[in-house]
Design a protein around this nucleic acid. Structure first.
Lengths: 351, 351
DNA sequence: AGCAAAGATTTGATCGATCAAATCAGCGGA
DNA sequence: TCCGCTGATTTGATCGATCAAATCTTTGCT
């Protein structure tokens, strides 16, 4: 007993057998009250902790989930994954799960690493993030029988045809709510600045604006812009919109980057009170007092873990088979309203 | 052989013994060339992967390092840790190490979790981030003999007295370089906006400004401001500075948040070309075209891993003992220069 | 009291790998 | 030709836990 104590040490100290010690830890209900106490006492007297690797070897499960850390992209939106990861570690911990992170260059690389981790029996399940159109990961993991849940819905019919678990945030509903809210407060011409067509997420968000804008085809065409993500781009598009003969009286954007840009443009155009709404509620939005649509990442993570492990516990459920109803969850985001002008710009001497 | 193949399966397929297979993987040099090839062939014909838990149980090492994910603080600067984590996963992977993440509420909680992970033999070493004054973690981990490396130097004499490994970025040198650069380009009155005294990091950065500002005591007092981190705060402080009778002709800040605020204030004051320098080179700085001081996180991580595991390999070295020279590394940051005015603000119609 | 069923505890085997020591093969020198 | 030596390979034991089945205890009922 030079190093850490083992079950045997505890057993000896408590005057029982290995297995009873094991039972106290894993199925306390089958051990007699008095015995259990005696064992528990010995456990913390000796400072015993089960050896994770030994347990995993026997039980063939690692109680560990892995998630990929995307290579850093220079958008503000990477913060969402960061918050997601943080939620994941917190909630996983509560279930007695561990979280491992890894990085990969692209989907193919990611799949290779997943196989390695999986084959070493290091990981029980994976969390995929940022699903794309024609996401080859879904099919590959399904074929290999690797349990996983995706954060992001399947965007194309082919992927949809592969039964799998996913959780996503309903961007359409979020944007629709924001537009409704703006219109209820008097806005009549709500503009849209979004991403180029073809990104599932972006198109969904735009659809929310389209549905609730209350505008005709022609007006919608004139009051919407599509561009790559970025502050500069937001400023440019908003500048164009505000220069129209009939300018918008509010702008909803597909991201906080765009919204920050739009906000800057509005100030420069002498319209500091123009309502601008972003997406993801990043720290920047909070810092400059920008309204934004917040993804309920706590609920997303809770749902993801529930789909993987059930309402409680740490036993992975196998991927849904083709004939069952695939399990998924679509969550509604929340509008975080902030006063435009909250930023003390106007208080600056000399303005 | 229902599930994954094991060493025995490979051995049988290659007509050798378990141990030889093991040797091919762990000490290839002692196996005869021809045998090795035969075994390697069998390995990938069967698709064999060593079972990580079994190996760990025997070797008593997990080849895994853990790092805490801080509870999300609403500053931009959390991004530094995010980038750090990303570098860590990439470089760890190259050494065959895995990275586990966990969250904790405070130092005490962190220590408790570290103990749990450590006792389960789940983790070989830890990476501490964001060291503070009187950081109790250093002593606790040292006393417990848990191998670790800190990202952040020891800030007080007491902690310095505990020999331990650390890596840090020399904020003083970074800021000094920025100030020098500004002065070389004609600035004569470089102001400072930093954090309240008492934070080690903040004081170091300020010291860099002090040393190179070329200003007298009185001027330094008038040209420096100290405040909590935040965009709004930066705007306020910069506004004050610019309203002085003798205003600064450049501003260096302790963070990008403050710098962004300062930049906004400068624009509002009609000085869009006023040089402003931030710290950490966050995506925001890139987005709005703000100069910033970048931490060489790749080097930081490389140094940290080297201190823990040596120039190569995955065998943890024990913490330095009291009589040896504690190993540490102080790295110089890099100034990322960007044109102020890069942001197309002035191109906005109606400005 | 007697006896079966349920409950509690123990024993032997096993998970998949590596370590330590034993065995075997090949080779040069006396 | 036989011995010793080095290098290559194999065998038996072990890491620390849980599983499955066996054994021992208690309970409940007639």
């Amino acid at each position: 007993m030079s190093g850490m104590p083992t079950v045997d040490d505890v057993a000896r100290a408590a005057g029982v057998s290995r297995q009873t010690v094991s039972n106290v830890l894993n199925s306390p209900e089958i051990v007699r009250e008095t015995t259990r106490e005696r064992v528990l006492d010995a456990i913390d007297r000796l400072g015993y902790r089960p050896h994770a690797s030994a347990r995993r070897l026997r039980t063939r499960k690692s109680s560990t989930i892995a998630v990929r850390i995307d290579p850093w992209r220079d958008g503000i939106s990477g913060i969402v994954l960061d918050r997601f990861l943080h939620q994941l570690t917190e909630q996983a911990d509560r279930r007695g799960l561990r979280v491992m992170v890894f990085s990969a260059d692209d989907h193919a690389d990611e799949l290779a690493r997943i196989r390695r981790l999986r084959e070493g029996s290091d990981i029980d399940a994976f969390v995929l993030t940022a699903t794309t159109h024609d996401d080859e990961r879904i099919r590959a993991l399904t074929d290999q029988g690797v349990p996983f849940v995706a954060f992001g819905r399947p965007w194309d019919p082919e992927t949809r045809a592969v039964p799998h678990r996913w959780v996503d945030v309903d961007g359409r509903v979020g944007v629709a709510a924001a537009v409704q809210h703006l219109r209820a407060h008097g806005a009549r011409r709500v503009a849209w600045i979004g991403w180029p067509h073809g990104s599932g997420t972006g198109d969904e968000r735009r659809a929310g604006w389209e549905a609730e804008s209350g505008l005709g085809d022609r007006e919608r065409a004139s009051l919407s812009r599509h561009t790559e993500d970025g502050v500069t781009e937001g400023t440019r598009c908003a500048g164009e919109l505000l220069a129209l003969a009939e300018p918008p009286d509010a702008i909803v954007c597909a991201s906080d980057s765009l919204a920050l840009g739009a906000m800057i443009a509005a100030r420069s155009a002498g319209l500091p009170a123009l309502p601008v709404v972003g997406f993801d509620d990043t720290p920047i939005a909070a810092a400059v007092g920008l309204s934004s649509i917040e993804q309920p990442l706590d609920d997303v993570v809770a749902a993801a873990l529930e789909l993987l492990f059930g309402p409680t516990g740490d036993d992975v459920r196998p991927n849904p088979s083709s004939d069952e109803e695939p399990a998924h969850r679509l969550l509604a985001p929340r509008l975080v309203e902030r006063r435009p002008g909250h930023l003390a710009l106007d208080a600056i001497p000399g303005t």
